[in-house]
Structure formats: C-alpha cells, structure tokens
Computed example of a mutant assay.
Amino acid sequence: MRDGTRFGEVADVYEDARPAYAPGLAEAIAGYHGSTPGDVLEIGAGTGKGTAVLHALGGRLTCVEPDPRMAALLAARFPAAAVVVAPFEEAGAGPADVVGCALAWHWLDPERRNRLAFDALRPGGTLAVFGHRYDYADPAHRRAFDEAFASVDQTPAVVRDDAWVHRDVLGSGLWADVRADATSRTLPLDAAAYLRLVRTFGPFRTKTPHAQERTLDVLARTLDALGGGTVLDLRGFLVLARKPANRAGVAPRADN
C-alpha cells in the first residue's frame, strides 16, 4: 500500500470531515453475497468510514490499516473488530467470505491488488470495492475551484473516471459475476467544512506546510467569492465480484 501512512497526521480531521457512505451499500453487498458471511476482511480501513458498511454485514470483522494513528481511532470505534496495523500487501490476512475496500483500492499495488484480494477470499467469496468521487453540483463552482487549485500548484491532478475500478477488477481475469452500480447524491458544505475536507485529500497531504497554507488561503477566498460555501456531488460506486467456487480464475464478464 503506497504512502499508506500519509493521513495519520490528520486522523481526527479525517474522521470528522469525510462523509459517510451512501445508505443501502450494506444491503447491496449482502444481497449479492447471498448469506451472512462468517468472516469479513477490510482493506485500508482508515478510521472506519467503510467499516461501518462492512460491520453491518454481521460477520467477524478484521480490518487492515497501515497507519497506527488511523488504526487507533478505528479500534476505538469498532472494539469487536480485529485491527491489523500493516499494509495489506504484507498483512497476510484471510481467509474471508467477504473482502471489502472503501476508497483505498488505488493505494494498492496495481499489479497485485486483484490477486491479493482473490487469494484472501474463500471459494465463492465476495469482493466489494466501493467509494465516491468528489465533484461539484454547480459547474461554475467546479471551474472556480479548478482555477484556485491550479493557481498554487501546476502539477496535473490524477483524475480517475467513475468506472475505473470496474475495469480494473474485470480486466484482471480472476473474477466471476462482476457487477457495478453507480449513485449520486449532494453534500452541502460551508467554508469551514470544505476546508477541513480538503485537508484530508492525498494530494494536499503531499504538499509542504507552506504550500498547504497557501492552498487553504486561496480556497478560502474562492469560497468567499462563491457565497461562503459549495455543494459537492458525491458520485458513488460499488463493484462486486465473486471468487469462483472451484477455479483459480475465470475469463472476465460484465453484467452491466
């Protein structure tokens, strides 16, 4: 898990500022899996935003999180869960009936993430990768914030389209019955809440303290010009896949 500990400095902010996942995710995963799982394994659990979804499945929960500061908050929130403080690539966790990953799939080694998740599952087990992409409900706000970020950092942003996880899982050739679903919901934020959220984003965490201050200052002025807040469009995704019961992998097939 690359740079898996960059968020620990703002673990408390992360827990407070990051929005919860959309209602209905646990029900969708449970419906696909078909029964109550005995063991659930979470990759890159952070402070537990995705853990809340996976906990609702009802199985014994093991959470893998590389940052000890994030893991401490996670353990306090979910005392019944077993918390493994290690990168997923080194954890050796499993076997599980469900392997879940919320907004951490891109942090995993792209050459190994599907195979590692596949090997952590029992035959017939379910992979559930879910999360949301942050966009702006108003295109004028999107342009204003794009200009604000670019004014302090000319480095091109890494932009992943909404379907990249689905393509990644499907393209591995390991999984059966690969399905994808998408949602969209709005999240109004005042200036303070927006700035706290930005402090938890990976690209922001890589900046020097001086560059972070400059970024927050420019964003604060942008928010003021936009009326003191903005409305985000949380573009949610859920990718589900099954480990074949008696095979090491299958040719990929998309259901939707």
Rank of each mutant, 00 (worst) to 15 (best):
V169A: 03
V231C: 00
T51Q: 05
A71P: 02
E147R: 15
S35V: 14
V152R: 09
P252F: 05
A182T: 14
P37M: 13
G227T: 11
R143F: 01
G249W: 10
D217P: 00
D153C: 07
L189W: 04
D138K: 01
A176G: 06
Q212D: 01
A241V: 14
Y21S: 08
R253H: 04
V129N: 03
Y14N: 05
R196P: 06
P87F: 01
A251M: 06
R2C: 02
A157E: 14
A220S: 12
R221G: 13
D12R: 14
L197K: 07
A211G: 07
Q154N: 06
G131W: 05
R205H: 12
R60L: 02
P68N: 06
G59Y: 05
A251G: 02
R214M: 04
M1I: 11
G24T: 12
A192N: 05
G229T: 09
D67E: 02
L238D: 01
G31R: 14
D168K: 10
H106K: 13
T215Q: 15
Y136P: 02
V159R: 15
G4Q: 04
V64N: 03
L103S: 15
G8W: 10
K49S: 07
Y32I: 10
R247T: 11
L74S: 10
D233I: 06
F237L: 12
A17Q: 09
G31T: 10
P188T: 09
G24R: 13
D153G: 01
D109H: 07
P95Y: 07
L74Q: 09
L187W: 14
G94P: 11
E42G: 04
G171I: 09
G229K: 09
C63P: 02
D16P: 04
D161P: 07
A104Q: 04
A176W: 00
A72K: 10
D138H: 03
D109E: 01
V84F: 01
G59D: 11
G227W: 03
G131F: 08
V98M: 06
D181R: 15
G228W: 03
A241H: 09
V40I: 12
A140H: 07
R2T: 15
A193C: 04
V83I: 13
R122N: 13
E42M: 06
L121C: 04
W175G: 05
A17H: 06
A163D: 11
G131D: 00
G202N: 13
H132N: 10
A254S: 11
F149W: 14
T36Q: 15
Q154Y: 00
V64C: 03
V158Y: 00
A182D: 02
A93W: 01
R185V: 15
A163G: 00
P209D: 11
G38E: 15
H106V: 14
G229L: 04
A91Y: 01
A248V: 09
Y32C: 05
E147D: 10
R122Y: 00
G4E: 08
D255I: 07
T47P: 07
H166L: 15
R253S: 09
G8Y: 10
E27W: 06
L187I: 02
D39E: 15
D146H: 11
G31M: 03
A148P: 02
D109W: 08
L195T: 08
A86G: 06
P244W: 07
V10E: 09
P68I: 08
P87E: 12
P19C: 05
P110N: 10
A137N: 05
Q212G: 04
V129Q: 03
V159Y: 07
R2S: 12
A104N: 02
R221Y: 01
F88N: 04
L121D: 00
